[in-house]
Design a protein around this nucleic acid. Structure first.
Lengths: 336, 336
DNA sequence: TTGAAAGCGATACCAA
DNA sequence: TTGGTATCGCTTTCAA
């Protein structure tokens, strides 16, 4: 591997000049620039990452703290990871995986060893135990998700509360008076996942405001659990005429249960899906739904991180507006 | 942040001694060890990652080249990532994400800048364009998946060919004479994904050997595509009495289509699923299936990488034996 | 516009 | 059993 000294020698300049040519932090004569550029190309020079990090006190990497659990929303998580990795590269940064299991110690580790310049924390809990650690570390960070007490920290997420309101309003406007919601697995609520709590909160208050009958249950990721839950919800009195599904993993199962019970969508019941658009679109009936906008959220998160690294801006909270797209699974309730 | 010199000063020893105490590469008196340990704890010392990497010429990170595509098998990919991240930490290594899109240039980049000590490449194609690059880089590496020409490289995967054979044999033994296979999306075959090609190869040759009628089609990830594909397969003559599903994403849809057509599982048709066990188990009928063993493969891959880093072993190919577990979706074909 | 040289914070060789 | 010191490859300040 060629070093900066090799390049300097080849170009007949000093190492510092090579460094400045590469970083652009100094004005260099066109002639010198050309000489250096030629040598760089000729030798296939690439600056050594650790040497650069050591000297500049910047690792050029961001830590991604993500939960690789099965109970979680795997496809959505994947979209986030993809968006984040891509955005990071655009800003000339790399992404280091930090598993959720490492917890607070993981944050301390990557921070104290200067492995990363900043961290991006996914799957935030309402009362997340990592928040105090983040505050005291003083490590630039962005949370994906909105905890109860975000003060001092930067967060970005889809406005889950508003998403629920939007779904409820959509159905209310169509004349539905009794609605039900298929929730995330119990474990998600148990650990206080911010996104799920905010969604149910929005669901309940929007329904109350409109005077709708509204029920919901947590649902595990299995056909049996889904069937049980859907049947339970359908048995309510008054019987729901619309279903909001906030659990993509069981979306197909919900529709299968309805079909088995000869309940037609949307003739007999309306369905609104919260989740990735491609999932909603590719069901038996293209579903009215609200996209999670993983791409935008991931890109936003990285952008906010970069802003912090540049010294600009401190804590900032961005909640993206949800958008409901009506497809073929929701319609006006028939007059009886 | 405390440095090694701070610790040395506090403990009243030299920096090199501190280094040796921490690495254990030298025998140190119990007394000195204790002094150093105390100072380390007292100052909360953690070695700086870049300094260590620069001096030791080891970054302590492995690059994970993975495809974050939607057409791919997302849950399985996630299981791999989780297993790899965990295994890496056990060996005191970190994982750096390298997106598939960076292609060969990505490999060159992380290798030439000494960002990582080794790479783990997922989603290997039969004639993968990255193989020559890997060979010339001389960077320790392990492929997850088996290309056509693996010479000089280490690979690990489930024996996909054998998995197909196992599934076919299982059905043949149950008396089935005509079987069909629901394949991966067309794009997977188009780019020559090794795992998918090897599976179909095994499927076709095992069926031929047993003299079974056997058809298969690629299937996109949508309900409509699945319905079309299943109906197409069922229309074959002789009609298949068993279905092998190698595309987890449409597993639920396949079962829904069968139910809609009043075809009972397993009374009218047997179903064998290739994919994560929890997915197979959580369907309407617990499915006979072959697990992908993502956990084991991921852990194996990391282990092989570590072996290479220690200087042991060169190229090695590990194909894990598939295991078929019979559940409630397959049974003997009724005598007619 | 450029160069020299002092770090950055570890590791590991050479001595003692 | 320990210490001193050169070294890793780059960035950046200080001088010219």
């Amino acid at each position: 591997m060629a070093t900066i000294d090799d390049v300097a020698r080849d170009a007949g300049v000093s190492a510092s000049t090579v460094s400045y040519v590469l970083s652009g932090k100094r004005t260099i004569s066109a002639e010198t620039q050309a000489k250096v550029a030629r040598s760089v190309r000729k030798l296939g020079y690439r600056p050594n990452a650790s040497a650069r990090a050591l000297a500049s006190k910047k690792s050029g990497a961001i830590g991604l703290v993500a939960p690789f659990r099965a109970d979680n929303n795997v496809p959505v998580l994947m979209q986030f990871v993809a968006a984040i990795a891509t955005a990071a590269r655009v800003h000339d940064h790399d992404v280091l995986l930090v598993t959720q299991e490492e917890g607070e110690e993981g944050l301390r580790r990557v921070s104290h060893t200067s492995l990363v310049d900043a961290v991006l924390v996914m799957d935030v809990e309402a009362d997340d135990s990592r928040l105090p650690m983040l505050r005291t570390l003083g490590l630039p960070s962005v949370l994906i998700g909105l905890p109860d007490e975000p003060r001092g920290l930067s967060c970005v997420d889809l406005d889950r509360r508003q998403a629920a309101v939007l779904a409820v309003e959509h159905l209310a406007q169509l004349g539905h008076r009794s609605i039900a919601m298929v929730g995330a697995p119990q474990a998600v609520y148990d650990r206080g996942s911010a996104y799920a709590l905010r969604f149910t909160d929005g669901f309940e208050s929007a329904a109350a405001k409109r005077g709708l009958a509204a029920n919901w249950v947590p649902v595990e990721q299995s056909f049996e659990a889904t069937r049980y839950a859907v049947e339970f919800l359908l048995d309510a009195d008054p019987a729901p005429t619309a279903l909001i599904v906030q659990n993509e993993a069981v979306l197909a199962a919900v529709l299968a249960v309805l079909e088995r019970r000869q309940i037609r969508v949307p003739e007999d019941i309306s369905v609104v899906a919260i989740g990735p658009t491609d999932l909603a679109v590719n069901q038996r009936v293209p579903l009215t739904g609200i996209d999670v906008q993983a791409e935008r959220i991931g890109a936003s998160a990285v952008e906010m991180l970069m802003k912090q690294l540049k010294g600009d801006a401190v804590s900032e909270i961005r909640l993206l507006s949800p958008e409901l797209i009506q497809r073929e699974s929701s319609r006006e309730i028939p007059n009886e």
